[in-house]
């Protein structure tokens, strides 16, 4: 289509490009007079993954449903479980075990095995900088998992270790940071 017009004359001179003041309506769609009679989105109804679709309403509806689901979950949790509140803070009465919040439980677990400089400083800073550097270290352009074996294995290993350490620190540690089975004794705190 464009070939023709380009070869023959300037597009602006072509009749097809003259905009009428009132757009035509064909099949309920307003057509600017460039393409006669066909909706500009094409005729094919095949759903192609790479096709651009309108965010409103397609994504917004999905986000709204996701938001409602999350809010329902929060509502149920808040109705069923009260947030914990212990006795008033007492600097002279150290509880045993002393537990960090669960998202730091992995670090606290590491603290039991390594020098605090390693577990408390080097590991967390290393993780943060390592994560931030990831896109610059992994320059492999492929997206499919089978072409990214190294990256996926490394990240999965890291994630797995971290989750295990978190679980251990959160639920499997009791007085003096000794091992406990959570189904026998529970020391996890939220």
């Amino acid at each position: 289509m464009s070939d023709q017009t380009e070869n023959e004359e300037s597009p602006l001179a072509g009749e097809a490009y003259t905009l009428t003041s009132e757009p035509k309506l064909i099949d309920g769609r307003r057509v600017l007079g460039v393409v006669p009679g066909k909706p500009s989105t094409g005729e094919s109804k095949d759903l192609i993954d790479e096709d651009a679709v309108m965010v409103w309403p397609h994504l917004l509806v999905r986000h709204a449903v996701a938001a409602l689901a999350v809010m329902l979950l929060v509502l149920l949790l808040a109705l069923l479980f009260d947030a914990p509140l212990r006795e008033i803070a007492n600097p002279n009465l150290t509880p045993n075990p002393e537990k960090a919040p669960w998202y730091f439980a992995a670090l606290q677990e590491l603290l039991a095995h390594f020098h605090p400089l390693v577990a408390g400083i080097l590991v967390p800073t290393g993780i943060l900088f390592g994560l931030a550097a990831l896109p610059y270290l992994d320059r492999n352009a492929y997206l499919k998992p089978r072409h990214r074996k190294v990256a996926i294995t490394a990240f999965t290993a890291f994630l797995g270790i971290w989750i295990i350490l978190t679980l251990v620190g959160f639920a499997f540690r009791g007085p003096n940071w000794g091992w406990v089975w959570p189904w026998n004794e529970w020391y996890g705190e939220l």
């Binding site: 803070a89 007492n90 919040p101 605090p116 400089l117």
Partner: peptide, 29 residues
Amino acid sequence: LSFTGYLLPWDQLAYWAVTVGTGMATYVP
């Protein structure tokens, strides 16, 4: 944000979790 909020109820849980967490800072060389 989570960690700073954890201290605010000022109960034993809050106090000692934050004591453990901030204790790590003392090991910065």
